[in-house]
């Protein structure tokens, strides 16, 4: 056993390994673990931020979609409204024009009627005046039948040219 097992070696090895363990832990493994932990943190943060960015992007996209939808709807409404007002205005204009035309026509008809009546009235007055004149002339002159007919023709001609 003396050759195979050496107590001094045994003790020295225990102490040496203890010291090596302490030195390695303190000067090598601790900073290494720190770095590895830091990297783990970094990766985690980056994954988190990427996840957050993705969620944000999705949210924005959704918002944009909704805004687009809204804008489209509004535009549609506006066009619809414009079309409605346009057609209504056209109807109004046509209606107003028609009314105006009717009014003008009726006015014109009324004017014509009244002019006609006036003309008839004045004709009547002149005819009666003329007949009185003719009668008085007949009475005044005592003329024969031949001259009378000449006379009537003459006055009728006069009436024809005068009227």
């Amino acid at each position: 056993m003396g050759n195979l097992f050496n107590w001094t070696n045994f003790l020295i090895q225990i102490i040496a390994f203890g010291i090596l363990y302490l030195l390695l832990s303190k000067f090598a493994f601790k900073p290494l673990f720190g770095i590895m932990e830091k990297r783990r943190q970094m990766v985690k943060e980056q994954i988190d931020s990427a996840e957050k960015g993705r969620a944000d992007a999705e949210r924005y996209l959704e918002e944009q979609k909704q805004a687009l939808q809204q804008a489209r709807k509004e535009a549609h409404d506006i066009i619809e409204q414009a079309r409605m007002t346009g057609s209504k205005q056209a109807d109004d204009i046509v209606l107003a024009a028609r009314n105006e035309a009717n009014r003008l026509k009726e006015e014109a008809l009324r004017d014509i009627e009244s002019e006609k009546n006036k003309a008839i009235a004045s004709l009547k007055a002149q005819v009666s005046g003329l007949s009185v004149l003719i009668a008085s002339k007949i009475i005044e002159k005592q003329i024969d039948e031949k001259t009378q007919s000449e006379l009537v023709d003459q006055y009728l001609q006069e009436v024809g040219t005068k009227s």
């Binding site: 097992f5 050496n6 070696n9 045994f10 090895q13 225990i14 390994f17």
Partner: peptide
């Protein structure tokens, strides 16, 4: 053996 036994016993 004394050194490996030291590690093992530790």
């Amino acid at each position: 053996a004394s050194m490996t036994m030291a590690l093992a016993l530790t």
